[in-house]
Simulated assay, not measured.
Amino acid sequence: MRIRLTAGETVLDATLDDNATARDFASLLPLTLRMNDLFKREKYAHLPRPLAAGGEPRSSYEIGDIVYWSPGPDIAIFYDHDGQSIPDPGITVLGQIGSGAEALKQYEGTVDLTIEAVG
C-alpha cells in the first residue's frame, strides 16, 4: 500500500510492507500525529492503540524506515542514522519512505504529521 506523509511543507511518499502489523497500521489511516524528536535521528509519536503482531522484530534500521515499537505503542520515522541498535523488544518495520526522509531534520522538537493512504 502506498501512503503519503505530510509535515508542514514536506511531503514524502512511502510504501507499507505486507505484514499483519503494517496492515493493522493502515486500518488507522488517515491519521495526524504530533511527532516528537528522539536522539536527532527519528520522529516518533504514540499511536491510539497497539498494533497486531505479525512483522519480524529487528534491532537495526535504515534511514527512511517507518517502524512500530510495541512498548509505546509508538510509530517512528528514521531520518538519520547514529550507528546505535534498537533495544529489546526491537522494532517492526511497517514500510519505507522512497526518498527525502532527511527533510524531517528541519523540524526541531515537535511537528504535526499527517499520514494517509494514496490511490
Rank of each mutant, 00 (worst) to 15 (best):
V111H: 01
Y79F: 12
Y61I: 03
I86R: 05
E102H: 02
R4V: 10
L51G: 03
V118L: 05
D24Y: 03
E116Q: 11
T92V: 15
Y107L: 04
I66G: 00
T114P: 04
T15I: 14
G8V: 14
K43A: 01
P87I: 02
I3R: 03
R58E: 14
P50G: 01
W69E: 01
N36G: 12
I91M: 12
H46W: 08
D88H: 11
G90D: 09
P48H: 13
L31W: 00
I86T: 09
P48E: 02
E9H: 12
T15R: 14
G98P: 02
N36R: 15
H81S: 15
L31F: 02
R34K: 10
S27Q: 14
V118R: 02
I63K: 13
E9R: 15
G98N: 11
L94W: 09
H81V: 08
T21Q: 04
E42Q: 07
E108S: 12
A26H: 01
G83E: 04
A7H: 00
A52S: 13
E108Y: 12
L29R: 03
Q96H: 08
P87C: 13
R49E: 03
R4S: 12
D74S: 05
S60K: 06
V67I: 07
L47M: 11
L29P: 00
I75V: 14
R23A: 14
R34G: 01
D80M: 12
P89H: 07
T15M: 10
Q96D: 13
V93A: 06
D17P: 01
V93I: 11
L33S: 06
A52E: 15
L94F: 04
L38Q: 03
A26F: 00
S59I: 10
D24Q: 04
G90K: 06
L16E: 00
E42H: 03
D80V: 02
A22T: 00
E102Q: 13
K105W: 10
G55V: 02
K43F: 07
S27I: 03
P30G: 12
H81M: 02
P30Y: 06
I115C: 01
S85Y: 11
K105V: 08
R34C: 14
I66S: 01
I115L: 07
V67A: 07
D13Q: 07
T15W: 15
Y79C: 01
L5F: 09
Q84N: 14
G95N: 05
Q84M: 15
